[in-house]
Design a protein around this nucleic acid. Structure first.
Lengths: 265, 265
DNA sequence: CGGTTAGTTGATGAATTTCAACGAACGTGG
DNA sequence: CCACGTTCGTTGAAATTCATCAACTAACCG
């Protein structure tokens, strides 16, 4: 099966699990120092809450490019906050059919889908050399009890994943290949901008195949859509280096022209 | 626009919002008496917790078939527990493109996607004469603080919605029309069985168009897939009355034959 | 009973997948 | 540092699935 071949072909540079603990010191100020703290879970917490949250993060680990962070069916022990680098998560059913559920950037919290069953349902791979903070889930629950604001943040985080998935389902149902690609690029652009990077030029960390899986298309279709965007001079692609030349045109593309199936409601 | 036409054509028998309060008495025993309590949010709570949860439910409301319960952009005031009947929720973007995000049965909790922004992002319609319990969200948060088990249940509920959406995304990406329909029917069958009804025979509460939207297909495609299942003598359809004649064959259909695109992972 | 809505079926066409060949980029070891 | 093998990306042609358009029937409701 193609997918499982690919799974094993991943260069898992660290054993899945507690790979490569980077630092075991107390991170009293860990979150205060973090470049993406404004995007992460402790955002908005009181100073005291923030310190207590930092204490939770007793471990950070590095994962090399291609390395696995956790696998489906692993027990839920931690949530993972991306500190730098990026990840993809893949959801696979018993038949081995799978898809990339998401790409994760610094400040994102991975693993929330495991709360439902206390086991991870996705597996996570680093798309580049990356570092994550380990958030022990049980202790997070306790701290959230102590700091209701943290509990609310967690609830909002979970809920926003639901909304995000709904948007993606809508995209899968109503958008053409080109519109999906436009939407994907704009989404990345926005997220890079939120993290202080250029909204117009960035480097894709994922393969065409990953993008295809994420968008519910085949890799050839991605290539052709890219070729078309290039031809329209809306975006230039140099391998994985992207430059958005005409942002308004890209946004217009994303929304299509209303010629799509609208659901009955 | 087709979709918005359909929206207004819904026979909204009650004004959106606090329509038709059914009973304002204290529901100390409301949940204990409820036929679907084993499936609902207070499941597993202590006796005291359960009573306190019941007190939260100071209102139930009835919604007639076609009636709206809440709309996108309504502020999050309540979560809604279906007591009897059924609902669909629809997610629509600014362009008016939309899709049915879910169908809801007794014991299901609707509205969790609103926690993210404090506003509903979907609208909910009754598919038949139905009744819901109103769960005031702010007070639920408070009670969840008092009963950590309730908090955990809420977290699990949110997380399981994420997982459900992932499964649906996988279906949209990798399943053919017929496999999606098979999967849909089996899902309904399972949920009816969980509620004490027959897994083999049931009545669809939603239109072909709703099914199509939910499965990311057009209604004609649903009809053709139904015709094919009928021809194979796997399922009989009398209008909305379904009888599953050959459950193993339906399950085999759901899983396809491994000839589908598997994502790179 | 008539008008509307829901569901069915056929013919056609468009978008995407599939299959295939090839070129570019990468990294590993000599 | 180059050569080789592998992976990744690109493009073309054919096949397939599903959407679209259209006509028609059945069910429903006042």
């Amino acid at each position: 099966m193609h997918s499982s071949l690919n799974v094993v072909s991943e260069k898992v540079s660290q054993p899945i699990g507690l790979a490569c603990p980077v630092d075991l010191l107390s991170y009293k100020t860990a979150c205060n120092d973090c470049r993406v703290r404004a995007l992460c879970l402790p955002t908005g917490l009181s100073r005291q809450g923030n310190d207590r949250f930092s204490e939770l993060i007793s471990q950070r680990i590095r994962i090399n490019k291609g390395g696995g962070l956790y696998q489906a069916s692993d027990p839920l022990e931690f949530l993972y906050a991306v500190r730098f680098g990026s990840f993809k998560t893949c959801f696979t059913n018993v038949e081995g059919q799978g898809l990339v559920t998401n790409f994760w950037m610094p400040g994102d919290i991975m693993g929330c889908d495991a709360i439902s069953t206390n086991r991870h349902v996705c597996c996570a791979f680093a798309l580049e050399d990356s570092e994550v903070c380990l958030i022990p889930y049980k202790r997070l629950e306790t701290l959230a009890h102590e700091f209701p604001f943290l509990q609310q943040s967690l609830n909002r985080l979970l809920s926003s994943e639901i909304v995000r998935d709904h948007k993606r389902l809508l995209m899968m149902c109503n958008f053409s290949a080109e519109e999906r690609l436009a939407s994907f690029l704009l989404g990345l652009s926005k997220r890079y901008a939120e993290r202080g990077f250029s909204a117009h030029g960035f480097v894709l960390r994922m393969s065409r195949d990953d993008i295809a899986s994420y968008l519910g298309l085949r890799l050839e279709t991605i290539c052709r859509s890219i070729a078309h965007l290039r031809q329209l001079e809306i975006v230039t692609f140099g391998g994985r280096t992207v430059e958005i030349l005409n942002m308004p045109a890209l946004k217009a593309l994303e929304h299509g022209y209303g010629h799509h199936c609208a659901a009955s409601m």
